[in-house]
Amino acid sequence: MDNQLKFTDIISEALQKQHRKSDLSTFEYTYKAEITNIHRLTEMENLYRIQIIDTEERRQFIFQPGQFLMLELPGIGEAPFSISSSPARHGDVELCIRKAGNLTNFLSRVGRGTHVGIRGPFGTNFPMEKMHGQNILLVAGGLGLAPLRSAISYAQDNRSRFNSVDIIYGAKDPSQLLFTYQYDMWRADDIGLSIIVDKPDSSWKGPVGLVTKILEQMFSERGNPFFKSTYAIVCGPPVMFKFVCNMLNQKDIPMQKMFVSLERRMHCGMGKCCRCNVGSTYTCLNGPVFDYWTVMNLKEAI
């Protein structure tokens, strides 16, 4: 045993790097990047593959699931987006972006090869290391699947470290389902995936309703011991947080083991522009990932 290399030491050093609070040089810097591909997911959402041009910088770009970055287009503006690719891909990130505002509408019109700037990564992350050896339950609603996809990819990459991984995904109608091409891949990786839509069309064969319906089913199928060793990540519209988290809380998942990702307007990512604060908590510094206990103690957060 003695002549084994201590890999853990090397890993922990690398992990410390992502705690950007101690590393000031990483966030001031804007990486030059290029949109290498645009994948059309639905009518409104596109998946952008963005690659940092410098190979060395690309390799050194480390982020954790749940963190976000600032995407900037000179002349158009800058906006925060959560990263939806696997952390193993380093500076070869994927962003799932919906056409909703000025910058995103412009983005929907650009083609491959457009040069953009990225700053980051910012914010807190889902504590995936803490979840090792436990079950994880990922509940997504609508576009909330975008930040969760990073956690799902992490679970795919480190499948041996988790017991059971389940995704519950709800969307308005079947045409708005994101990442449809990946569902089979997730299932093949032994990740339970249940999809539910609110307004089905004629071709839809799956369940109809809200994500809470699937949760109830799950509660009746699996016993309390399962939920005792479960971490939950919930991401979706703010209305969803309350219902889902309260349901999970009734099943003995403590609030500290439930994580949500909040959304606020941001301009700096450094806690200076004062837009994203909920109470005295800055979403860009202490968030966007909060445990549910913290969120409950923040007034007017959800």
Partner: peptide, 9 residues
């Protein structure tokens, strides 16, 4: 100290 960031062309 709040500020807004804009791009002016």
């Amino acid at each position: 100290t709040c500020f807004n960031v804009i791009d002016w062309k």
